[in-house]
Amino acid sequence: MIAALRLYATQVVLANRMALADRANFALQAGGMFINNAFMLVLWGLFFAGFKSVGGWRQGDMALLMGITMTVVGVSGVAFGGYRDMAATILRGELDALLTQPKGLMGRLLARECLATAWGDLIGGPLLLAGFARLSWGEAPLVVAGIAGGTVVYVSAGVCFASLAFWASGARSFARDLTDFTLVFSTYPGSIYRGAVKAIAFSILPAGFVVMAPVRMVRDASVETAAMVAGAAVLYAALAMALFHLGLSRYRRGASVAG
């Protein structure tokens, strides 16, 4: 277990150094994302200055939501950045070389890339949480737990979408679209969703479990809200592993479109 973690850490460090190899580009992407987020915050600031609240959500709740979303996307991109282009990796047949190695296929796939833009999120998210989300120090462990749960769900969803590449060659852009759609849901007040839209946000595009459930857990700490975050993380991680391995066995039978 410790050896596996160390191996994973080595890979993440390598991926980050690779992203840093072109410093100007890295600064541009990370800084660009930071400014991008800042603009969105100005827009939300204007919104809440004018309308005060939406569905019971106030500025502080929105800051909490955006802060968790940004941190989740940041952690995912820095430590599990391979999720973003995994479908393309599968379709290019790059699994072959990894399959001839003895260890941690999923780990190798997730850690093969670090997204420079994610650093912009990872710096902005905690700043936002600390400055505007109206949190007390006592809530910090809840926030960290919420971010951990959200990250697991977000990366797992990404792996599920990427696994479609084992079945359909068009999955490359589709998988990215689905990840982006999940993100769109994750950047609006959870209180606005009703009916079918809400059902989608808590299933196929699990924005509900990426941020809304963690936000609820922080604002209303209870066994149920905590169980919801933890349960979703376990469930989505299991689903992602199952789907990926189903696809992988198909790939190894030679029935897959990839390779």
Binding site: L7, Q11, A21, D22, Q101
Partner: peptide, 19 residues
């Protein structure tokens, strides 16, 4: 191998992969 990094780094990673 990892394109942007020195070969030595890739080798070191493989050391961990193969224990």
């Amino acid at each position: 191998l990892w394109g942007e990094l020195p070969a030595r780094d890739s080798f070191d990673l493989l050391r961990h992969v193969y224990d």
